[in-house]
């Protein structure tokens, strides 16, 4: 199965609810809304054989959050599955039931970007202490001014 076939399979299955294109060799970009995340993930895992979960990147755009799930197949084809999340309600379904390896990556995204993964078994801060205020990777997080002696 090459990149075009994967895109075609995805489009056949989900129609115009998703946007999918081949970015370069072995890289496919798929854009979805957050409601579809479980369906698409299941489809990718079960039928298209995307077993390797690399990581989650959460990006803070001016108008939305985006969770980018990097998943790949055994032959190196990688999908950047982008889920749009509205700014005022940063929640998305957890994919730990499909890829258990997503556990800590979701915790990281929660810790640093403040995105809440519903259904995650253990959603706690991972790097920062429990009582830390705010989520540092957000663009509106105020950095401390560097102070010199």
């Amino acid at each position: 199965m090459n990149e075009e076939e994967i895109v075609k399979r995805l489009k056949d299955r989900f129609g115009d609810r998703i946007e999918a294109y081949v970015k370069r060799k072995r890289r496919i970009v798929v854009k979805i809304d957050r409601e579809l995340i479980i369906d698409v993930s299941k489809f990718l895992f079960e039928e298209l054989d995307f077993k390797f979960f690399s990581t989650i990147t959460a990006v803070d755009f001016p108008d939305r959050f985006e969770c980018i799930y990097h998943v790949s197949r055994h032959d190196g084809i990688m999908i950047l599955l982008k889920a749009r999340i509205p700014k005022n309600d940063p929640k998305i379904k957890s994919v730990t039931s499909i890829w258990p390896g997503a556990d800590w990556h979701e915790r990281e995204a929660y810790d640093l970007m403040g995105i809440i993964f519903e259904g995650h078994p253990n959603l706690k801060r991972i790097f920062l202490p429990e009582d830390f205020k705010g989520h540092p990777l957000r663009k509106d997080f105020k950095l401390q001014e560097a102070s010199w002696f």
Partner: peptide, 28 residues
């Protein structure tokens, strides 16, 4: 892995993400 998003306007990355192997290995 390194994920970079550039907004095309600045000479600094808008978002950069490092996918580090030890993190996933320890989580397992």
């Amino acid at each position: 892995g390194v994920y970079i998003y550039s907004d095309g306007k600045s000479d600094k990355p808008y978002r950069i993400k490092f996918r580090v192997p030890s993190f996933a290995n320890l989580s397992a």
